[in-house]
Amino acid sequence: MHQAHIRSKPVPPQIATLWLAGALISLACFGFLTRLARYVDSLATWIPASGSFRFGLFHLSLALNVVHLLLGAAALIVAGSAAHCVPFLATTGVAFLVLVGYGQLEVHPILPDLIPTSSGSIWLHVVLALSAITAGLATARHQRSPSH
Rank of each mutant, 00 (worst) to 15 (best):
M1C: 07
M1V: 13
H2M: 12
A4Y: 13
H5R: 14
I6A: 15
P10K: 03
I15D: 02
I15S: 07
A16E: 01
T17W: 00
W19Q: 05
L20G: 01
A21D: 01
L24W: 04
L24G: 05
L27K: 00
F30S: 12
G31A: 06
L33A: 13
T34S: 10
L43S: 12
L43I: 09
A44I: 06
I47P: 00
P48Q: 06
P48I: 11
A49P: 00
F53E: 13
R54I: 15
F55W: 14
G56M: 07
G56D: 08
L57C: 09
F58P: 03
F58R: 02
A63I: 08
A63V: 11
L64C: 02
N65S: 13
V66C: 09
V66L: 13
V67R: 07
H68Y: 09
L69F: 13
L70Y: 02
A73K: 00
A73F: 06
A74T: 09
A74L: 14
A75D: 01
I77R: 05
I77Q: 02
V78S: 01
A79C: 03
G80M: 04
C85I: 01
V86D: 01
L89Y: 01
A90C: 04
A90K: 09
T91I: 09
T91N: 03
V94M: 11
F96I: 03
L97T: 06
L99A: 15
V100D: 05
Y102E: 06
L105A: 14
L105E: 03
V107L: 14
H108W: 07
H108E: 14
H108G: 05
I110C: 04
L111A: 14
L111Q: 08
L114W: 09
I115R: 07
I115K: 11
P116E: 04
G120D: 06
G120Q: 06
S121P: 09
S121A: 13
I133V: 11
T134W: 12
T134C: 05
G136D: 00
A138R: 12
T139D: 04
A140F: 02
H142F: 13
S145Q: 13
P146F: 04
